[in-house]
């Protein structure tokens, strides 16, 4: 036994389809076993901070705004 699929699948019909409710999407994802990946996001932020912080402040500054007494940045060339 199988269902018969006779109704037309047109773009117009797809546009007429109901606007999906965000709550239903969330529920479908939860039932499928997908949880919000909050720990992954936290690890990404920490990694980002650890990579950026050790860089010397001057490396992040544009050569034109660098202090006059210091050696010219390679970027100045």
């Amino acid at each position: 036994m199988s269902l018969k699929t006779t109704e037309a699948a047109t773009g117009a019909e797809a546009r007429l389809a109901p606007k999906p409710e965000p709550r239903d999407y969330r529920s479908a994802r939860t039932l499928a076993g997908l949880r919000k990946n909050t720990p992954g996001l936290i690890v990404l932020v920490i990694l980002g901070v650890l990579i950026v912080l050790p860089l010397p402040w001057s490396c992040l500054r544009h050569p034109r705004t660098a202090s006059p007494g210091r050696a010219a940045s390679p970027w100045a060339a």
Binding site: A17, P18, K19, E21, D24, S27, A28, L31
Partner: peptide, 8 residues
């Protein structure tokens, strides 16, 4: 299993 009104 769950089927929703808005299909999702």
């Amino acid at each position: 299993g769950m089927v929703f009104q808005s299909y999702a």
